[in-house]
């Protein structure tokens, strides 16, 4: 797609002018595994503004200073993470007793966020199909003091685990249309090929959930074939699956109306909502328990 085609494409989903003109702001997540929030506020020299999430902040390290080149980052006191990408872990809301599958964990932003929400208790299977991406995962786990994650390298499209996890996060690899200039590489065929992998990951992860378990599916793209279509297929093929309210308040638009009222429960985040990348987030439950 060229720029004009992308603008037209995006207009079929949201207010493209607002989405494309929204400023993208740097954000951090305070890592309370390493430092209490109050203490962080006492030692950090970062300029910070609050967001919808108590541990997520718009942050500025000063002229010419990258947030990844700060004391706070080095010491693991914070992680540079887009605000949108904090939402999936908040929606899944894992607790200290949960056994969690993170199907595509690298580079570990959401893994470490879930670990923080779990107070380093419970257990996370932090999986990725790719060892090269795994090095960033290992590095972030160590820097951020994550002790409740076990790293595996498996193909998440065929995990071969049945009815085991209490929660699962499928932050699926996608066509990344919310990333700058990703539209240049986008073709419907590329998206279709990616969606086949996403659907397999979603089904494999859903099957790995125990009865009563919850799953959050997220992408950083706008394409409905990678978002609502994947969820629709799961709902059709797995009778025990149901969409759930997100349970977290943050600005977003509902799922596309063409998929019906039930899809008002899913979230489409666009840059105009809180100056962060676009995201799709859906929460599902297995069975009624």
């Amino acid at each position: 797609m060229d720029e004009k085609q992308f603008r037209d494409y995006l207009s079929s989903y949201t207010d493209a002018e607002k989405a494309l003109s929204a400023p993208m702001r740097d954000t951090i997540r305070i890592n309370t595994l390493k430092i209490p929030k109050k203490e962080f506020m006492g030692v950090s020299g970062l300029k910070m503004e609050p967001t919808f999430y108590e541990n997520g902040f718009y942050a500025d390290a000063g002229p010419g200073v990258r947030l990844g080149a700060t004391w706070e980052y080095f010491l693991g006191y914070m992680h540079t993470q887009t605000l949108s990408s904090m939402a999936p872990a908040l929606v899944l809301n894992p607790g200290e007793r949960d056994i969690v599958l993170d199907a595509a964990a690298s580079p570990g932003s959401k893994t470490s966020h879930m670990s923080m929400l779990m107070n380093n208790k419970g257990a996370i299977l932090a999986n990725d199909v790719n060892w090269e991406r795994g090095s960033a995962l290992f590095s972030n786990i160590a820097r951020l003091g994550v002790l409740n994650a076990k790293v595996t390298v498996r193909d998440a499209t065929r995990l071969g685990i049945n009815a085991y996890f209490t929660k699962a996060l499928v932050d699926a690899p996608c066509s990344s249309l919310s990333q700058p200039y990703a539209y240049k590489k986008f073709t419907p065929n590329l998206s279709y090929e990616i969606s086949k992998t996403q659907i397999k990951m979603l089904f494999s992860s859903y099957d790995a959930l125990a009865e009563g378990g919850e799953l959050v599916y997220s992408t950083c793209t706008y394409e409905k074939g990678e978002n609502e279509e994947a969820i629709k297929l799961l709902l059709e093929k797995r009778g025990s699956a149901s969409l759930q309210p997100l349970g977290v308040e943050f600005p977003h638009e509902p799922g596309l109306s063409e998929y019906g009222k039930e899809f008002r429960k899913v979230a489409r985040v666009y840059p105009q909502h809180f100056s962060s990348e676009g995201f799709f987030i859906a929460k599902l439950k297995k069975g009624s328990a």
Binding site: A123, I124, L125, F138, V146, N148, K150, V151, T152, Y164
Partner: peptide, 14 residues
């Protein structure tokens, strides 16, 4: 608590 997780893998960090 990580000991309860059955599939084999790399535990925590070095």
């Amino acid at each position: 608590t990580l000991m309860m997780l059955k599939p084999s893998g790399y535990m925590g960090f070095v």
